[in-house]
Structure formats: structure tokens, C-alpha cells
Design a protein around this nucleic acid. Sequence first.
DNA 1: GTCTATACGAGGATAGAC
DNA 2: GTCTATCCTCGTATAGAC
Lengths: 215, 215
Amino acid sequence: MASRAKAEKPLNTKQVRDAEATQAVILAAAEEEFAKHGLTAARTEAIAAKTGVAKSMIYYYFKDKEGLYQAVLKRSHSDLLQTSQQLDLDHLSPESALEKFLTALLDCVARNPKLPMIMFHEAVQNQGQYYKRSSSLSIDKALVEILERGVATGAFRQLDPFQSAINIMGTCLFYFIGIGNIQHYPQGKRLLSKAMLEQHSQEAIALILAGVRKA
Amino acid sequence: MASRAKAEKPLNTKQVRDAEATQAVILAAAEEEFAKHGLTAARTEAIAAKTGVAKSMIYYYFKDKEGLYQAVLKRSHSDLLQTSQQLDLDHLSPESALEKFLTALLDCVARNPKLPMIMFHEAVQNQGQYYKRSSSLSIDKALVEILERGVATGAFRQLDPFQSAINIMGTCLFYFIGIGNIQHYPQGKRLLSKAMLEQHSQEAIALILAGVRKA
DNA sequence: GTCTATACGAGGATAGAC
DNA sequence: GTCTATCCTCGTATAGAC
């Protein structure tokens, strides 16, 4: 570190000093930490340690812990929000719409398995204030509408759309929230492996579709 | 408080100094706090404030925050554990067994709606260490066995018992974990009212039974 | 932009009077 | 058993050099 004789061009110090990259690694580490501990219990020191950069970089780029938290929330939810906006389910039959919706949702959380944990911490600790503002509610709304339509059509049985929407979300997301507990079940599988995630999606969709369909 | 002329018998100071009662109020307040924040983010001051007793009482009765946490975990899980041990499902048909299991589980969490939150803080923050030791795993095990039996019998469709057990637990418990987020959905119902809990149980059971049954 | 060193406040835990 | 006062660690946030 003291003797880098080769470094003859100080023009580009990008490898060492890169704002974008630094922010990115901080965000990634923060996402992990916040997912595990939520805002309050998260430690800025732990985040910094994971990145390798100095703790003060967090404050330089994100003002304070709260600022970093908001940035993480925004980034985590963006994929889900975007996905839900592009769905366009109205022209599909209730059953097809539901399947498409579930597939999109499960793909989304498979891409970012920490999202449910982050949402969970927000929900219990912060009473879902961010969730409220971020209009992630639109997702649930979409699901409720599918169910209402299915009941009206007669494709689905007489279920309560509101309650069922919650239960369906639970079927999809619980897997990711409960991992810490689930992993102790005697069976040596990596819960987040591609194969297991794929299987989870299939099983969840199958359970839900069978569960709502009219007998 | 200074002039209580009536107090002629100092024999029984129970109303003011009652070990049992003090421990009880501390435990109750702690349960709330830990459910909301988990071990790390919970504040002993907040717990003390809710009870009215001095903060130092926590340390007197429970040694430290960790000790209090363990006591809360133990108390919260005891009902669930006891319930699951008394189930005796082997002589029932898979479908009846499943329904009985779900009813018991849902009654249990309806009595203590904070239990799921506590379990999940444990799961994500502490990797489910307590969950592991407490043999709460026996609950999941019971569910997996029911499902295995149902698949073998042909009463249930070809589902993966392990994955489905998780999804079923999610259907039952997510409601309680997500309350913070769910409550913002435009509909002015108290999610923990007796009527709503009853409805949730019915809807969850219906969804699950229809979901596993062979078509 | 990045680091090291440090100020400062919050919160866990204890001492000792009553 | 209960309270008040206090200690001291830990963790957030800032200052200032490079």
C-alpha cells in the first residue's frame, strides 16, 4: 500500500475512489442489515464493516441512518412497484389474472428475498408508514380486485376478497420471513437455492389456485 | 399519598408490594415491547414506563434484558406447545386432522396475537435459536405428518408436504405479522376484533382445505 | 471521496437509601 | 420489594486531515 511504483497516471483514481460504487456497496450491505434487524436495531458500524469503507461514508452519502434506511426502502420496493404497474390484468380471466399476478409477485421476491423481511420490520416497528406512502398498497389492491372479479364471475368460490388477499400474500411471502426458523427443520436443503425457490413458487401457486377455485 | 390515615394494618402491604403482580405487569409490558421491536431494539425504559414500576425492577426479577426476553419467549410459546401436545390427531382422517390442527393453531394465536411477531423477530434476528431449542418445531412436524398422510391416502393432491406446511402456516399467521401494513388498507375495521379474528380463521381454513384437497 | 479520531447522547445495568 | 441516582458502555454522528 505504501509503495505503488506502477501508478504513473493519477488521472483516473476510479478503482479507489468511485462515488457510485461506494454508494452501491453501502446500499447492499445496509439492505442486509436492515432486513435482519430493522431500523432501530441495525448498526451503522456493522454496515460499514461489511463494506470495508469507513463508517463516515454512510453519513457523507446518506446524511444519517434514517436517510440510509429510506434509500434502502425505496430501492427494495421499486422492483415490486414497477412489476405491479406493468401487470395489466383486466383483460384476463380471473384465474389467469391470479396466476399471472402470483407468478410476477413470486419472481419479484425470488429476485430480492430480503424484501419481505424489510416490509415486515416496517410493518411492526414503524406501523407501515413507508408502506402506506409508497403506494405499495396498490399491489394488495390489485389482488383484491382479481378476487372480487372471480367471485362475481363464479370462477371462484364464495370467499372474502379482503381476508383472502391477506392469506394469499401470506402463502407467498411467509417462506421468506420464516427462513430463520424454517432452516432448523431437519432437512439439509438451502432454502434460497434456485431449485427450492422454484419449487416454492410452484407449490404456493398450486395451493392458492386450488384454494380459491369453485369446487 | 402522604396522608393515608386509614392504613391501620401494615400487615398486608400486598396492594403496594406484590412480587407476583409486579413480575406479571413487567412480563405483559415486555411482551408488547419485544413483539414490536425484538430483543435488540426493545427499550427497558419503555417497558418500565408502561408498567409504572421502576426500571430497576426488571433487573431485580429477571437479571437483565436478555433474561426478561427469555421469560417472555417461554411464556408466549407455552400455550402453543401445550396445545400441540394435546392434539392427538393420528386416529383422525387426514382432512379432519388438518382441520382440527388449524382450528387449534388459529385459536392459539387469536388468544395471543403477538406470538407470531415474537416468533418472527426471533427467526430473523436470532436465526431462530430459541425456536430450535424450544421444540416448537414439533408443531410444524405435526403438520408435515398430516400432509404426508393425506397424500399417501389419496385424500390430498400431490403436494410437497414440507413446502406446503410452510405455506399453510403462512396463510394462518401472516395476518398477525402484517397488521401494521394491512391496517392502512382503506377499510375501517379493527383487525384484532373478535369478529375479524373469527372471520380470518374461517377464511384461512377454507382456503387451506380447498387448497390441499384432491380435485 | 475517504479515512481516523473524537464528541456526545442514549440506554443497559448497578448501588444504596427506604 | 421498590425507588432514585448514578455509572459506563455502546453507537450515532461530526471534525478535520489527507
